Amino acid sequence: MTKDQMTIDTSAEHWENDALPKMREIHTDPDVPGVSADDLPKALGEPVKQKSPAQWAYERIIMYIQNFEKQLDNDHEVGMGLAGGNAGVIRIEGLGYYDPDIVTYYGVNEAGAKTQLIQHVSQLNVTLIASPKHIDQPEPKRIGFRLAEGLERDENVTN
């Protein structure tokens, strides 16, 4: 092994690399756009150990919502399937978190009623669904792209 081939990380670099998020996706269809580590918002490249479980879950959910929306046509918006009871599907209109461990989704259900799901990160289980956009709106609302803008800011997104 030559000097050019060998790299030695300091203890701090090793710790930081270990704390940075890692991800991987494989699909049966190679044309399905997966989430790319190259396209991640700035906030998702920060060390995980600096974040609460709620902030970390919130940021990754945004990434998945945005990627899901990229695959939708103009007649559909992102919706979310809710488990348990007769909750059904809600059209996602907002997403938030409350440190250290709560994530909340805001939206409208299939009957048009305002809906909010409050979920502990240990129970996180979200099904993204292509929901038809409201008949009266010309363009679908893309919440994922608006949410992702917040992850590109230089300031801490928790404030």
Rank of each mutant, 00 (worst) to 15 (best):
T127N: 10
Q50P: 00
I92A: 01
R60F: 12
A43D: 08
T10Y: 11
I129N: 03
L20A: 07
G81K: 08
E77A: 00
F145P: 01
D75Y: 08
L117A: 13
L72W: 06
L72P: 00
A12D: 09
A54M: 02
P21A: 10
N125K: 11
K51H: 09
L82Y: 00
N125W: 03
V32F: 11
S11A: 09
M1L: 03
L128Y: 08
Q55R: 12
Q66I: 05
Q5S: 12
H76K: 08
Y58L: 05
E16Q: 11
G150N: 13
Q66C: 13
R24Y: 11
K22M: 10
K22E: 10
I61T: 07
I65C: 05
T104L: 15
A37R: 07
N159K: 11
G85H: 06
L95G: 00
A113D: 10
K133M: 12
V89W: 03
I143R: 00
M23R: 06
H134M: 14
T28G: 14
R91L: 04
D75E: 12
A57V: 08
V89Y: 04
M63E: 13
Y106I: 15
W56D: 14
G107E: 02
W56T: 07
I102P: 07
V48H: 04
K42W: 14
E155Y: 09
